[in-house]
Design a protein around this nucleic acid. Structure first.
Length: 817
RNA sequence: GCCGAGGUGGUGGAAUUGGCAGACACGUGAGACUCAAAAUCUCAAGUUGCUCAGGCGACGUGCGGGUUCAACUCCCGCUCUCGGCACCA
């Protein structure tokens, strides 16, 4: 037998698959469809192991379900807009389009040798006008439905570079390029009103039974629905009121001061009243240099009192001071809080630092000791209301409703539902993205570009310096337009769209990738959608996976798609690391997939990635582990000869039955592991056990029936994991059809069942022996067998059995005094 | 800081979801084959203490406590690592 030659085999089968177009997908109404989707990659320039892992996992699903007889759609494309292309343009004087195209070509070239079962006919790149035209089209549809609007929002701004900075371009409050302090700039920007769908995004979770609980929980917390009250605090000496949101009206009597976020409008509106305005302004400016995360993760709370301004606690009627502090978030609630230091730890810390009174209004009645709770730390739990006038003595949980009613009756507040989810800011002051299709006419105002004029194409003639306010403003041809309505002078919008727009509906475009007349044909999308299995990183749990769900619901409301949710099952894969830390260029610990594939072959790489860890968990790269997989493939290769050689002492009937039992059990385990548990690592180890069993019988196998049958199933079961190898062996076994197009094997339970079972016997929780019994033996008989077992007897001598338990086919437990 | 996940032998991981902890593999050691090496095949092994060399016992799933006949699994409290926090994608 010749040696296993991965290079020749992989090339041979990749060419055959392509020649016979076996992964080309077309609608077959009579066949059950299966849409397998890998999150589309950003073409950064090099395929990394994280990509490889993503696509190999996807390929197992795609190939497995194809073998299950389904009509599979499995596709690849490029999330081609984004910041790195513009950075490259500045740094290397290469146009973003050219840089991106080069990267796509390179990465496609790295991807193909992996032998993933993609239908490459449907490949898309989001930077193609034929794709982003439809982003613009959807934008206008949303406009018409009242789902887009403009409002002011802050951007990171570097005044020395005169440019907007992304969050990742601000390092410790400094511009990454010039190292100067950054600030904020308030710009009028475009938003999509995803909050209109917030209830449905939450409600839709009930349909997503194929998503991991943790992802749903993350989304739920991100959406952050809470019931509470909006309460108005009068500002002394004015007619104005300060609005706050709270979920704890039961603590209202404990409010001893108020805190507003640095961006809060009250600061500028009450400027004339604030006697230390300069000090306040300095604090505000300092906090604007920090990111939201820096602000909230500050151990030490900071703030400045707004001298000369105070509020009235509507419950106690007492005058209370107002602070500005950056631990209060601008974007949550109304950007102001009522501070209850006794019952909120952050307020407590702030009160301690600024000597604010701490008034206990909820007594912890579960604590036995008379602890001076609120003087040591805030008590955030439930209890009995105190210091709260007519509400004293009530259970705090009941007081929530009563106090809420009272507040509404007194008209200084009302019950509302609040969400953390914010509307989606899609404006980017950048070049390499979808132009927002809007013009500003001096006469007609702000108007969308008519559909028939789409796409609004990105101009090419731009020089990238990294020092411009917005690159598109530099193109006179692009900016200067005539109004579609009145024909007068108008200016084009120069903001482009967030790249999350591109990835919010691409899954639908794959179903009809070359349509020039529409985003897609609904008939096609309704055949393929929803995606049966979506695979990608957990880092997308909140943003991408909420935007996509929103977008799909919007398309449904336009009548374009018929389902409510785009992704039926979601698998979030873990990172690939090298000795525990993430591979990255800066750390210089990158393992390049193409080198490894060259040396060991795609099948070995695929097998290692699938075997070394379950897909959801982190995967640590290991060359030794990879070589082990190489050896396992060779072990299967050599087994071909072993099972086809006549043995001198053939296997007994009992041995044959045993092989068959292991074979059927393996089919059952592999099928279950792939289908239900996504546990490819245990699926592969099950096949390893079958291979080991065949090796154990190697001097007794015959060139007939059982051994060849078992071997054939090894190859079938491994086909989704190491497809090139399995095609080759399949051909050696004499089959004419591609194994990729063969049916997945079935198992029979009757072969697996055993008549005897080995039961561990525990005495007082310790394993003391084992007994072997027939499966159907009764508990009484088991008791007799256990008690008379020679290993057990000494432990029972002179002891009284106080408890005997038998968990069927699992364990025998005896408790003695 | 907030939200989510994870911590099991020398290493990656397994454990039918409360029932024999360590499947399968890597690495290691020993043996077979070989002039030799590699490759291959077979065997051994959590740590540790006794041992008549057949075994027998103790300890052991990040740390501390709890529930239970029984806990990697459930509960309470900590700790470390990782992902996300809305302009990286």
């Amino acid at each position: 037998m010749i040696d296993y030659n991965h290079a020749a085999i992989e090339k041979k089968w990749q060419e055959k698959w392509e020649r016979d177009k076996i992964f080309k997908s077309e609608i077959q109404p009579d066949k059950e469809k299966y849409y397998c989707l890998d999150m589309l990659p950003y073409p950064s320039g090099n395929l990394h192991m994280g990509h490889v892992r993503n696509y190999v996992i996807g390929d197992v699903f795609a190939r497995f379900h194809k073998m299950k007889g389904k009509n599979v759609l499995h596709v690849m494309g490029w999330d081609a807009f984004g910041l790195p292309a513009e950075n490259a343009a500045v740094k290397n004087k290469i146009h973003p389009a050219q840089w991106t195209r080069q990267n796509i070509t390179r990465m496609r070239g790295q991807l193909k040798p992996l032998g993933i079962s993609y239908d490459w006919n449907r490949e898309i790149a989001t930077c193609d006008p034929s794709y982003y035209k439809w982003n613009q089209w959807f934008f206008i549809k949303m406009w018409k439905k009242g789902l887009v609007f403009r409002k002011n929002a802050n951007v990171n701004w570097c005044s020395s570079c005169n440019t907007v900075l992304a969050n990742e371009q601000v390092l410790n409050g400094l511009c990454w390029r010039c190292k100067n302090h950054t600030g904020r700039r308030n710009l009028k920007q475009w938003f999509i009103k995803i909050t209109d769908y917030v209830e449905e995004l939450l409600e839709g979770h009930k349909q997503l039974v194929g998503w991991a609980e943790q992802v749903l929980l993350m989304q739920k917390n991100w959406i952050g629905k809470s019931f509470g009250l909006e309460i108005y605090f009068a500002l002394t000496g004015t007619c104005e009121r300060l609005k706050i949101f709270t979920t704890r009206p039961d603590t209202l009597f404990g409010v001893t001061f108020m805190v507003v976020a640095p961006e809060h409008a009250v600061i500028s509106e009450m400027r004339s009243k604030i006697t230390n305005y300069d000090e306040v302004l300095e604090y505000v400016n300092a906090s604007q240099r920090k990111s939201d995360i820096e602000r909230s993760s500050n151990k030490e709370k900071t703030g400045v009192r707004l001298e000369g301004l105070s509020a009235i606690n509507p419950a106690t009627k007492k005058e209370i001071p107002i602070f500005v502090a950056d631990y209060v978030l601008t974007d949550y609630g109304s950007g102001a809080v009522m501070a209850v230091p006794a019952h909120d730890q952050r307020d407590w810390e702030f009160a301690k630092k600024y000597n604010m009174p701490i008034v206990e209004v909820i007594k912890n009645n579960k604590c036995k000791y008379e602890k001076k709770f609120v003087y040591e730390r805030a008590y955030e739990g439930e209890g009995v209301i105190v210091n709260s006038g007519e509400f004293n003595g009530l259970e705090s949980i009941k007081a929530v409703n009563l106090i809420s009613e009272w507040i509404e009756k007194q008209k200084f507040g009302r019950r509302i539902t609040n969400f953390k989810l914010r509307d989606w800011l899609i404006s980017r002051q950048r070049y390499w993205g979808t132009p927002i299709p809007v013009i500003y006419c001096e006469v007609c105002g702000v108007i969308p570009v008519p559909e028939e004029n789409l796409p609004v194409v990105l101009p090419e003639n731009i020089e990238f310096t990294g020092l411009e306010e917005s690159p598109l403003k530099l193109s006179g041809d692009f900016v200067g337009v005539k109004c579609h309505k009145c024909g007068g002078d108008a200016k084009r919008e120069t903001d482009t769209m967030d790249t999350f727009v591109d990835s919010s509906w691409y899954y639908a475009r794959y179903c009809d990738a070359h349509n020039d007349n529409a985003a897609f044909d609904s008939l096609k999308v309704n055949y393929w959608m929803p995606v049966d299995q979506y695979i990608g990183g957990i880092e997308h749990a909140c943003m991408h996976l909420i935007y996509s769900r929103f977008w799909y619901k919007f398309m449904r409301d336009l009548g374009m798609v018929k389902h409510d949710e785009p992704f039926t099952n979601l698998l979030t894969q873990g990172m690939v690391t090298l000795s525990g830390s993430a591979m990255s260029k800066s750390k210089g610990n990158i393992v390049s997939p193409d080198e490894i594939i060259n040396k060991y072959g795609a099948d070995t790489v695929r097998l290692f990635i699938l075997f070394a860890a379950p897909p959801q968990r982190q995967l640590d790269w290991s060359l030794e582990g990879l070589e082990g997989c190489w050896r396992f493939i060779n072990r299967i290769w050599r087994l071909y000869d072993i099972v086809h050689t006549k043995a001198e002492v053939p296997a007994s009937e009992k041995d044959k039955a045993n092989i068959l039992r292991i074979m059927h059990r393996t089919i059952k385990r592999v099928t279950g592991d792939i289908e239900k548990e996504f546990q490819f690592n245990t699926a592969i180890s099950a096949v390893m056990e079958l291979v080991n069993a065949l090796y154990a019988y190697k001097y007794h196998l015959n060139d007939d029936g059982v051994s060849v049958e078992a071997y054939k199933n090894v190859v079938l079961l491994m086909a989704p994991f190491i497809p090139h190898f399995c095609e080759e062996v399949w051909e050696m076994l004499g089959y004419k059809k591609y194994i990729s197009e063969c049916l997945w094997p079935d198992f029979k339970e009757s072969f697996i069942e055993q008549s005897y079972v080995e039961l561990p016997v525990q005495i007082n929780g310790r394993l003391r022996g084992k007994i072997v019994v027939r499966v159907e033996v009764s508990e009484d008989e088991i008791k007799k067998i256990a008690e008379t077992d020679k290993k057990i007897v000494p432990y029972l001598k002179d002891k009284k059995i106080s408890k005997f338990m038998y968990v069927k086919n699992k364990i025998v437990t005896i408790v003695v005094d």
